[in-house]
Design a protein around this nucleic acid. Sequence first.
DNA 1: GCTTTATGGGTAGTGATACTATCCATGAAG
DNA 2: CTTCATGGATAGTATCACTACCCATAAAGC
Lengths: 215, 215
Amino acid sequence: MRIGELSRRSGVSVPTIKFYLREGLLPPGELTSPNQADYADGHLRRLRLVRALIDLAGLPVARVKEVLESLDAGDEALHHRIGAVHRALAPPRQPAESDDTRAEAQVRELIEKRGWAIEPDAPAIATLAETIAVLHTLGQGDLAADLDSYADAVERLAEREVAAVASRPDTDRIAESVVIGTILGERLITALRLLAQEHVSARLLGPASGDPRAE
Amino acid sequence: MRIGELSRRSGVSVPTIKFYLREGLLPPGELTSPNQADYADGHLRRLRLVRALIDLAGLPVARVKEVLESLDAGDEALHHRIGAVHRALAPPRQPAESDDTRAEAQVRELIEKRGWAIEPDAPAIATLAETIAVLHTLGQGDLAADLDSYADAVERLAEREVAAVASRPDTDRIAESVVIGTILGERLITALRLLAQEHVSARLLGPASGDPRAE
DNA sequence: GCTTTATGGGTAGTGATACTATCCATGAAG
DNA sequence: CTTCATGGATAGTATCACTACCCATAAAGC
């Protein structure tokens, strides 16, 4: 397959594919002559992954590159690769603020209580602590009060997700599934959560069911 | 409070506050003379909300403005305001693709089966359908196979969240809590989910517990 | 009163990001 | 053997979120 077909099948324009090649988001095709290259199905799959990361996850190109590099570090043990993927997918952090210390203690307490085996420097710990701290700053600390019920919910989901991902035929596919599952799973959960919120709020707060403040 | 104090208390530079004022993200202060204005605590709260939306939710300034406008449309019924907030917070959509039709049917079936009362044009429906379609395109359709378990999880969370939010003293605060809860709740769930995934994957795939492919 | 600093309001400029356009020599297709 | 596509490179563009600078005036400190 040459670049034109790759473009047609992926829906990405030829100049943009060239741009991704230059940026290292896509490995070069196999040269069959000095100015002719051949692209395989793997290129198409990789290109679709790049678009998903950029369009759906909103990752900047530079972060996409990091994620892909973590995907291609094939020599490490599986759970290390998953950790690398998680680290690459973590949202950018600004330096911790004062409130974060309290919140971080709360997070570590939760991890301990649930018996979760987490590396102490997992980036999600800082993200979580920062989020809780900001909730308090915004006067919405009660929303973070029962982390436990959130943890219950995501632990059940994680069981299913990891089991599904572990059924992939090789570690490359597992790592790829972790990226896709993390990113698109988040979007899926977010959209479902909005729907559930709309349903529940229609029931509790809607006009037909006795909003204590309305009517 | 004048702009300098607002800047110090929020951590946002004076030029940036001026920029937000120009862009309409922040209502103008009350003029006490032709070139002197007074800002209240509400400005500070609003400014912190703006920063949370930009920094944590990654919303572009123009979308933040829409969200704030949906917040300030105070005359509508509560559940309409919540719907407006959800619409403003929905991720941008590209025109639907062919695969989306199948996925959208799956979503509507789920909604029907669970008896959710959702407006048929809720933006989360399209987001969800698109996400499922992309999962299939990327060869990870199995991750979206049991939407039901995801729906179980988020429905439980939504019950708690809506109940917490409904306890706010007035509808303005409720609408504000919906924004913050939607955005920061997502971040909180995402971070917790990563931690849970790390825990489960360490157990199922880690080196000490018999990864079927390693050792 | 008088100097220094801060303020409101405006316009113009900047740096980063993600492409897009154009060019060229060469190869493939009809 | 003409026309179009390709690989490779360099330069340009649109958008976004600020940031710098300017001015006349007001507030704060002496």
